[in-house]
Amino acid sequence: MKRTGMRASFLVLCAALLTVSACTRHSGAPGVTPRAFGTALVSVSGEKQFAGVGSQLEQPLVLQVNDAKGVAVAGALVRLSAAGGAFATPREGLTGPDGQFTATITLGGAGGHYQIVASSPTASGQQIFMRVDESALGYQEMLGAKLNEIHCIRCHDPESTAERVSNMDNLTAKPHAFTDGAVLNPMSAADLTSIISHGGVAVNKSAEMPPYGSMLTKQEIAALVAFLRAVADPPYLAQGVNYASN
């Protein structure tokens, strides 16, 4: 009699614990309910930026939810998630009247590429996904970024700003933008180092690229190469087999 009583009270306790845990899980679930549904997620701006490790990206990420006709949907739910310590603020929310959802992205603590996964539920209860790439620069890449701003950007960046007019159009051999992964990824680090140190002529390319071997130290040139690799699009994948799949 005593035993059955104990067993019964144990069962009741378990049930109570389960209910409590279930309830807490419930209350942790998203409180935002979509008012509308779309069928496609598109990125408006804020893709492919870079910043120092752990830093917030300068421009916010703006995504838009469209319906089947390609018209922006207001009130659709967008959720953002990322691995490796990167996160979005806010992590989820509804699209505004213009059908857009804006969030700031903070990168994780390790250098490298980060993928932000955006998802939005459709009317049928399925999820649509979209992936956005951003990259985080470690010390070496950051140093490269700064050197790029001083020495390289005037010719290698087609964009002009009020303070800096691009010189790219004035050159006969058009320099490659440093984000041009299609061209730069296949080039070995040794080749890139050689071009930077000895100029374009070192690899039978245009003399318009001057030699920087006497101006920059070996470490600085390595930093520039690391920067190119970090911002390459498509992303640069290190040579060889990737052993650490975990």
Partner: peptide, 23 residues
């Protein structure tokens, strides 16, 4: 130290600005 503030470590000895520590 969270990664976003890492450059503060450099600042303990480097009073002079460094190219590699823009933040």
């Amino acid at each position: 130290l969270p990664a976003r503030y890492l450059e503060s470590g450099c600042g303990q000895c480097h009073i002079q600005p460094l190219t590699g520590t823009p933040k």
